[in-house]
Amino acid sequence: MESPHGAPRGIAVTAEDFGLEGPRGWAFRGVRIDAEPGALIAVEGPSGSGRTCLLLALTGRMRPTAGHAAVGRMRLPKQMSAVRRVSALGPVPGVTDLDPALTVREQIHERALLQRRFGGSLRSLMRPRSERRQSTERRVEDALAAAGLDLDALSKGPRTSVRDLERLEALRLSVALALIGEPRLLGVDDVDLKLSDAERAEAWDLLRSVAESGTTVVAVCSEAPEGAVVVSTVPAADGPDEEETAETAGAEHCGETEETEETKETKGAADAFAETGRA
């Protein structure tokens, strides 16, 4: 995927000693990243280790408290709003959930309307309505193709209810919705959650394809695939006690108890938003 001037749309992501601490401890800390534009960055770690918080911090949705990071030439946390303008979120539980009451067609139409109304520059809003509609339709078609989502192949076609989608289909839809805005940085949470081995391979093939087209991808997972830029949210430790303390601090920061992995990640993101301030 390239810009009109032929330059890669992807954007470099770097970080050094990057961390986020809240009233109840560290969500993550000591993170280092050095990824080129168009890279597939896999944020690897166990549930409760601050994976979602790191994803949200790198996309400008959560304010870090230690170290420094940059998305292209934009520094975090000073230029969070600028980073948000060039990034988009795919599935992030509790943040960008799909609406189960809508059909797939309605969900796409809703996002397309929002993109047409709020996603462009002031200059683009002054173009003729028909021209803006055609541009939006092109973006939707390109996004669906990039996400590998064939609407006609769904159980009821475009009229399929969002609540009836399989996990991999829902992932593809969420990615397509994010790509409508033509972001330079895409964030995806829980890539390998509740997927079979075959489905997990398909999910990584999808994100690898998006990255190869030029868009830099940051994806949260429990196990990174081959060829990805791997970032661990588990800090290096000199011994078992130190590692256990670090993981416990992250869990307490996100307010976690003994729940399912999906619920823990959702609560972690929600609590961290409340504690650090959602931008």
Score class of each variant (00 low, 15 high):
Val140His: 08
Asp142Glu: 13
Ala143Glu: 01
Leu144Met: 00
Ala145Asp: 12
Ala145Pro: 02
Ala146Ser: 13
Leu151Arg: 05
Leu151Gly: 02
Leu151Val: 04
Leu151Pro: 02
Asp152Glu: 13
Ser155Lys: 00
Gly157Cys: 07
Pro158Tyr: 11
Arg159Gly: 10
Arg159Asn: 13
Arg159Pro: 02
Val162Arg: 11
Val162Gln: 10
Val162Pro: 05
Arg163Lys: 14
Arg163Gln: 11
Arg167His: 02
Leu168Asp: 10
Leu168Ala: 10
Ala170Cys: 04
Arg172Ala: 08
Arg172Pro: 02
Leu173Arg: 12
Leu173Lys: 11
Val175Gln: 13
Ala176Gln: 07
Leu177Asn: 09
Ala178Cys: 07
Ile180Val: 15
Gly181Met: 03
Gly181His: 13
Gly181Asp: 12
Pro183Thr: 05
Arg184Ile: 03
Arg184Phe: 03
Leu185Gly: 07
Leu185Gln: 09
Val188His: 14
Val191Leu: 15
Leu193Cys: 08
Lys194Trp: 04
Ser196Lys: 12
Asp197Asn: 12
Asp197Cys: 05
Glu199Pro: 06
Ala201Asn: 15
Ala201Met: 14
Trp204Lys: 08
Asp205Ile: 05
Leu206Gln: 11
Leu207Cys: 13
Val210Gly: 11
Val210Ala: 14
Ala211Ile: 05
Ser213Met: 10
Gly214Tyr: 11
Gly214Ser: 12
Gly214Asp: 07
Thr215Asn: 12
Thr216Cys: 05
Val217Ala: 12
Ala219Ser: 12
Ala219Val: 04
Ala219Pro: 04
Ala219Ile: 04
Ala219Lys: 11
Val220Pro: 03
Cys221Tyr: 03
Ala224Phe: 05
Glu226Ile: 01
Glu226Leu: 09
Val229Lys: 00
Val230Asn: 02
Val231Arg: 07
Val234Asp: 04
Ala237Glu: 07
Ala237Gln: 10
Asp238Arg: 15
Asp238Gln: 10
Asp238Met: 05
Asp238His: 12
Gly239Pro: 00
Glu242Val: 09
Thr248Ile: 00
Gly250Lys: 08
Ala251Val: 03
